[in-house]
Amino acid sequence: MSLLQQLTSDMVTAMKKRDKETLNVVRMLKATVQNEQIELGHDLNSNEEIAVMAQEYKQRKESLEEFEKAGREDLISQAKKELAIVESYMPKQLSKDEVTNIVEGVINELNASSMKDFGKVMKSVMPKVQGQADGKLVNQVVKEQLNK
């Protein structure tokens, strides 16, 4: 089942349950996927679907961080709920240890030894963890590994 079909099915389920919060988030996600399809001019493949969901997840995570800085409790709970719904459509997120193992493998493969190789390492790691790890985490792990 494609992501678009899943979103449509979940939208119908949320309507039947009269779950307005879930319905609103699923509608936004579906609209984003459809807009991306229109922009690209074809149905999205699984990597493109993951990229769209990762972008949506990142936006909500950043919003949550801003709301926490501002002390907006009313918006924090809403952002957390939205984040959980978006997360349900994403692949399982990798732990820091799993990301570290991938980064170490890439560093060994590229014979990277210093921060000068940072760009090459990131360029090789990101496609392997696309949608499964936050870019900030990957960036942090690569810096830690190259500074050993």
Rank of each mutant, 00 (worst) to 15 (best):
residue 93 Q to A: 14
residue 54 A to M: 11
residue 105 G to T: 13
residue 63 S to L: 11
residue 40 L to H: 08
residue 33 V to E: 05
residue 41 G to A: 07
residue 28 M to T: 03
residue 65 E to M: 09
residue 103 V to G: 02
residue 41 G to R: 10
residue 119 G to Y: 08
residue 140 Q to W: 07
residue 52 V to N: 01
residue 12 V to K: 15
residue 138 V to E: 02
residue 116 K to H: 13
residue 134 D to K: 15
residue 9 S to D: 06
residue 94 L to G: 01
residue 123 K to I: 08
residue 147 N to E: 07
residue 144 E to L: 12
residue 55 Q to V: 01
residue 70 A to R: 15
residue 67 F to A: 15
residue 98 E to K: 15
residue 35 N to E: 12
residue 128 K to R: 15
residue 138 V to G: 05
residue 140 Q to M: 14
residue 118 F to P: 01
residue 127 P to Y: 07
residue 115 M to V: 04
residue 125 V to F: 06
residue 103 V to W: 06
residue 32 T to S: 11
residue 98 E to H: 09
residue 15 M to F: 07
residue 87 E to A: 09
residue 31 A to H: 10
residue 16 K to G: 07
residue 40 L to N: 07
residue 103 V to R: 05
residue 52 V to Q: 03
residue 51 A to Q: 15
residue 25 V to T: 09
residue 49 E to P: 01
residue 94 L to E: 00
residue 15 M to A: 05
residue 105 G to R: 10
residue 60 R to S: 02
residue 35 N to S: 14
residue 119 G to K: 14
residue 97 D to C: 07
residue 46 S to F: 06
residue 127 P to M: 13
residue 56 E to L: 10
residue 89 Y to H: 07
residue 4 L to W: 04
residue 32 T to E: 12
residue 116 K to Q: 12
residue 143 K to Y: 02
residue 78 Q to F: 12
residue 81 K to V: 09
residue 72 R to C: 02
residue 35 N to V: 04
residue 65 E to W: 08
residue 66 E to R: 11
residue 73 E to G: 05
residue 135 G to S: 11
residue 33 V to I: 07
residue 37 Q to H: 04
residue 43 D to P: 04
residue 53 M to E: 00
residue 65 E to F: 07
residue 81 K to S: 09
residue 92 K to N: 12
residue 136 K to W: 00
residue 28 M to D: 13
residue 79 A to C: 03
residue 93 Q to V: 04
residue 91 P to L: 06
residue 112 A to I: 08
residue 27 R to T: 14
residue 42 H to T: 04
residue 80 K to P: 05
residue 27 R to I: 10
residue 17 K to P: 00
residue 58 K to L: 03
residue 92 K to V: 05
residue 18 R to Y: 13
residue 108 N to H: 08
residue 115 M to R: 14
residue 23 L to Q: 08
residue 93 Q to M: 15
residue 136 K to A: 00
residue 16 K to V: 14
residue 144 E to Y: 13
residue 75 L to R: 14
residue 127 P to H: 06
residue 2 S to D: 10
residue 133 A to K: 06
residue 69 K to M: 10
residue 98 E to P: 00
residue 131 G to V: 00
residue 97 D to H: 10
residue 19 D to P: 00
residue 38 I to L: 12
residue 101 N to A: 11
residue 19 D to Q: 08
residue 7 L to Y: 10
residue 131 G to H: 01
residue 90 M to R: 05
residue 33 V to N: 00
residue 143 K to F: 04
residue 68 E to T: 03
residue 103 V to Y: 06
residue 7 L to E: 01
residue 91 P to T: 03
residue 43 D to S: 13
residue 143 K to R: 13
residue 55 Q to S: 09
residue 50 I to A: 08
residue 83 L to M: 09
residue 76 I to Q: 02
residue 115 M to D: 06
residue 106 V to H: 09
residue 7 L to R: 09
residue 99 V to M: 12
residue 15 M to R: 10
residue 137 L to F: 05
